[in-house]
């Protein structure tokens, strides 16, 4: 089995998964950039977390890190 066929076989898993992670990262990044204050941590930390620590980074940000005021 070639690599291409291998990847093709997993596409039904990969495409939705990548789309979801992308959506999480993008909403996270937009929100982090639009809000200057956080419950804890700073902007760089949250940017790294929402982009690279999927899916827990965005989760932690929206439920514990985001500050409205």
């Amino acid at each position: 089995m070639t690599d291409f066929e291998l990847i093709k076989e997993y596409l039904p898993f990969l495409i939705p998964a990548v789309l979801i992670e992308l959506a999480l990262a993008i909403t996270g990044v937009i929100s982090v950039l639009r809000h200057p204050h956080y419950r804890f941590g700073n902007r760089i930390l949250w940017l790294l977390l929402v982009i690279f620590v999927q899916p827990f980074g965005p989760l932690l940000y929206f439920f514990a890190g985001r500050e409205v005021e």
Binding site: P16, I20, E21, L24, T27, S31, F62, F63, R66, V68
Partner: peptide, 13 residues
């Protein structure tokens, strides 16, 4: 606060 969307996406994943 985008919480419902994020939660749904995480569990879909």
């Amino acid at each position: 606060r985008y919480r419902l969307v994020v939660l749904a996406l995480v569990f879909l994943l």
